[in-house]
Amino acid sequence: MTARSIEFSRRAALRAGALAALAVPLAACSGGNDESPDPLAPLLAAAEADAAAARALGTDAVAAQVAEARAAHAAALKSEVDRLNRPKAAAPSATPVPPSGVDGFRDRLAEARKQAADLVGGLPRYRAGLVASVAAGCAALQRVAPPLGPGDDAPDPVAPAGALPPEAIDPLQKALAAEHAAVWVYGLVSAFLPAAFGDAEKSGMAEHAERRDLCRKLISAAGTSPVAPEAAYVPPKPVTDSGSAAAVIATAESDTAAAWLNVLTRTDDAALRGMALAAMVAASRRGTPWRAEAGEKPTAIAMPGQAQSR
């Protein structure tokens, strides 16, 4: 979602000039001499097994989306697991094709989503962001077709207790800017959507408004003025009918997921990470049916918030 040059930069790393300034962060993410099993290895094994099982279902279109997304999860997780090269726990044997076909992925996606979400609060920042994207991607898949879900919606946003970590203020301002834009988009499309979309439109706007207000509260409590909304925003493409309206909503949802991923990877506060993850999951789940309505492929974004998913 563009908004007078509002963009969410997804730089892989900050490039400071002094090598000394880089020494501590690089050492912190190197893995050191940690000999404990890699906590990401079970996520990797599950993603690989799901991708293989989905491929085995042949030409089924829903299974193909599951296979593609879970293969993307596996590739991202494998790259990180291989990078640290920690001891590997004994991997479970690959789960066979579910006897119920695509329906068998309902529980598998729910378990994979929970397995990833449970790790987010305690991982180093980069890994927390990676795993959060996997959790949100599984949540998005749950909305692709009835046999896969519907899954549970994200919990209502809850303000973290205690003071807002200073490093979180700037990314939270960017998340607030994205929420402002999303609220505006939902208001814009009301004139172009049939009455059948009224409930989805109203619930989407209400949830973004709730998160917007929570962001304002957190930022104000930290002694900083919350960023104000723009008078108007510029959609990536003109909104002229229901299809283009659905597309601009899908873009707004994708952008809010990216903004909240930026919050999650800029703090070590577990409660704030939980709030950011809930926002990512909610945006990813809402975005899937809007992408389907707009005819966008794939219907579910495999790694919400990550640069390669856009």
Results as ranks from 00 to 15, higher is better:
A247S: 04
L148V: 07
L188Q: 10
D82N: 01
A279Y: 00
G204N: 02
F197T: 12
A21R: 11
Q306P: 09
F105G: 13
A136D: 05
V227N: 04
M303S: 05
V185P: 04
A159G: 00
C138M: 08
D60H: 15
T2E: 05
D199K: 02
L272R: 00
N85M: 08
R216D: 14
A139V: 09
L277A: 02
L40A: 02
I169C: 11
A282Q: 03
R55D: 14
A112V: 10
S284M: 09
Y186V: 07
E111F: 09
L26C: 01
A271T: 14
G223Y: 04
F8G: 06
A110K: 12
A63T: 11
A46L: 14
P238F: 05
G274A: 11
V66W: 01
A245Y: 05
A74L: 04
G121E: 14
E230H: 08
T256R: 03
P160K: 01
A112E: 08
A64T: 15
Y126M: 08
T288V: 09
G287D: 06
V24D: 01
V131F: 04
I219K: 03
G295I: 07
Y126T: 12
A64F: 06
R286H: 05
D156C: 08
V185F: 00
A28Q: 08
Y126H: 11
A232E: 02
A191V: 06
A28G: 09
V281W: 02
A41V: 15
A175C: 14
